[in-house]
Write a protein that binds this DNA or RNA. Structure first.
Length: 602
RNA sequence: GCCGACAUAGCUCAGUUGGCUAGAGCAGCUGAUUUGUAAUCAGCAGGCCCGGGGUUCAAAUCCUCGUGUCGGCACCA
């Protein structure tokens, strides 16, 4: 196989450019390596543009880069382009690919380029962003495109690709600009790799929490209820309450006190907090007796009122209040997505009121809490510090001090972190915890936010050693983020096969015949006593059918009870994953379940 | 919010260029069967075809305005 490009000092250079510059390097062949695919996909994007141009002659083109999941090209045409048009474009791409056009390259001055593309206002927009005096043009057949490469030597090498989705995208990623059409695609060097990729996509689809949530009867959404409002079904309710009670204990052990604020509070408070000004367009408001109330979009104000309920001494601090706080946020329709983005959700929210000196140890405590939970579920995670955003309250000095405190805590404990400039909350900087799930996807869940602004706005204070008034620091933190989102993530992480300690049902009991139902009920009661939920499959169906039905619920363990078991006081266990069967005495079985249900503590 | 696609039974889906009483499988109900590790058999019932308005002799099908869902973009205190 011959080279498609070369690697020169870590730079991927295509063959025409290498010749032009008279350089040599390690050959990159057409295979499924990251470097090779990058070149292949970039050229496939160009081939797609060529096909689009021939089908829609008025098309103008913006940019067509490669991305993690393949490539895309942004363009504009007066015609409507829908999913149904992808086949047509693919077909045209194959026609051009078969012609094996050589991909040629030449350089022209910026001036010439602007003249050349004078009818394409998108290309002109691209050129505005290029500082150089000359640009390179890549040419295949009649089609020419402004591009810096690298590209394949010929379009004939492009064979295994698929256009995956069509969507809109704002020019330059800014919603104030016009919207272009974007088509995404994927390409590989081999047929097998393309097929493997498509198979993997289908596998990921099977894990989709919306699909599993429906199949497993965890939750539902209904048009008449309203977009973004989840309805929790019994199975989901059981799962959720297991999570809640585990987490409740974990908070109590760490010195958090349960509190609860009201669902809505007078708007004056949201004006004091700054939410009215900064976030009002996303809040729900209502007027009662000429007073305006805002439904809470977060729980801090309630917890501030708890703090204000009595005078505090420095000896009381830190004070840690927690609440499974239900919040409402009017998310934009296009943002809603299953349990991941909803308009009503419950945060595992807590606020720590402490002295400046306590910040570091408090943050480290929270980080350790997070670590305990994430490793229990088998998530890897990383942390990111987000700094002052454009929309912010409070003066610059306070912000600087808060940001420095977060960095100091991370540094002092040798914790790895990255920085997201301008990603903070409007009242303070934060540490976000991003978790990696079973199939390598990244999710943002936990967050630790340092806040000097709300304590100032609400004039919070405590008495110091000299009986002086001192303003406490407030730390907002959530670990799961929200139960909705976290359960969605867990569902996909485990592909619905929840471990015993969190599964909606721990055991499915299948009595062989009518006469064994009584023993099944007795066993079920004993399971409740050890905090395990079970379901008895005693319907008038064949044994095979009932085992099948139970299997499909993804219950971790199925036990079959018949004459033999009743006689010997045993249970016949069927393991979900291995489908292996083994027998345990009733006592051993209950012991096993008890261990498995209680083996996890956060 | 923006671009595009879609909405038929509890669920998954058929339903031809507008034309007979809108179909199937699963789930549900009734009966027979009482089962030893992934679907026993038979029968029955189940629909404002997402909602409003329109075009037409005739609308699940075409147009329009909503609502909701999906894929992205933008957004995510």
């Amino acid at each position: 196989m011959s080279a498609i490009a070369i690697k020169y000092n870590d730079e991927i250079v295509d063959l025409v450019t290498a010749e032009e510059r008279g350089i040599e390097g390690e050959a990159i062949e057409l295979d499924n390596s990251a470097e090779s695919l990058d070149v292949l996909r970039h050229s496939t994007a160009h081939l797609m543009a060529q096909a689009i141009k021939s089908l829609y002659p008025d098309a103008e083109f913006y940019v067509g880069p490669t991305v993690k999941e393949g490539f895309y090209y942004d363009f504009k045409t007066a015609s409507e382009v829908g999913e149904g048009d992808l086949k047509k474009i693919e077909k045209q791409m194959l026609v051009f690919a078969k012609k094996k056009y050589k991909i040629e390259k030449y350089e022209i001055s910026m001036e010439e380029a602007k003249e050349k593309f004078k009818d394409d206002h998108l290309k002109l927009a691209v050129m505005e962003r290029i500082p150089s005096d000359t640009v390179s043009i890549y040419k295949q057949g009649e089609f020419e495109d402004l591009c810096r490469g690298p590209h394949l030597p010929s379009v004939g090498l492009i064979r295994y690709f698929k256009l995956t989705k069509v969507s809109g995208a704002y020019l330059g990623g800014d919603s104030k600009n016009e919207m272009l059409t974007r088509i995404y695609g994927i390409a590989f060097a081999t047929k097998e790799a393309l097929k493997a990729h498509m198979d993997m996509m289908r596998e990921a689809e099977k894990r989709d929490h919306r699909k599993l949530g429906n199949e497993m009867k965890l939750f539902t959404f209904r048009e008449e209820v309203g977009a973004g409002f989840a309805i929790w079904l019994p199975a989901g309710g059981r799962l959720r309450s297991r999570l809640e009670s585990l987490l409740f204990k974990a908070h109590r052990k760490r010195g958090y006190e349960p509190v609860r604020g009201p669902e809505m509070l007078r708007s004056d408070l949201w004006k004091t907090s700054g939410h009215y000004q900064n976030y009002g367009e996303n809040m729900y408001f209502t007027n009662i007796d000429e007073l305006e109330f805002g439904v809470k979009p977060m729980n801090c104000v309630g917890h501030i009122k708890v703090y204000e309920d009595e005078l505090h001494s420095y000896r009381d601090l830190p004070l840690k209040y927690f609440e499974y706080g239900v919040v409402h946020r009017h998310e934009m329709t296009g943002a809603l997505h299953g349990l991941f983005r909803v308009r009503e959700f419950t945060q595992d929210d807590a606020h720590i009121f402490c002295t400046v000196d306590q910040i570091e140890e408090q943050i480290i405590d929270v980080v350790e809490f997070v670590d305990k939970i994430m490793t229990t579920f088998g998530f890897e995670y990383k942390m990111m510090i987000s700094t002052k955003p454009e929309k912010a309250v409070g003066d610059a000095e306070v912000w600087e001090k808060s940001e420095a405190a977060l960095v100091a805590a991370m540094e002092a404990h040798n914790l790895a972190y990255t920085i997201d400039e301008g990603g903070g909350a409007f009242y303070g900087p934060k540490i976000d915890i991003k978790i990696l799930d079973a199939i390598g996807r990244e999710w943002q869940c936990g967050t630790i936010q340092l806040d000097n602004n709300l304590p100032a706005r609400f004039e919070l204070e405590y008495n110091g050693e000299e009986n002086e008034k001192i303003q406490p620091v407030m730390i907002h933190r959530a670990i799961l983020g929200s139960f909705e989102r976290f359960i969605g993530i867990l569902t996909e992480h485990y592909a619905g096969e929840f471990p015993m300690f969190i599964a909606p049902t721990q055991v499915a009991i299948v009595p062989v015949a009518e006469s064994h139902k009584e023993y099944a009920k007795l066993l079920s009661d004993k399971l409740i006593d050890i905090n395990a939920d079970s379901e008895i499959y005693a319907k008038n169906d064949s044994l095979n059918k009932r085992i099948r039905t139970a299997e499909k619920t993804r219950v971790p363990m199925i036990v079959v009870l018949g004459d033999e078991e009743i006689e010997n006081k045993t249970v016949a266990i069927r393991d979900r994953r291995t489908r292996e069967q083994y027998t345990l005495s009733e006592e051993e079985f209950l012991q096993l379940i008890q261990t498995k249900v209680n083996e996890v503590n956060f």
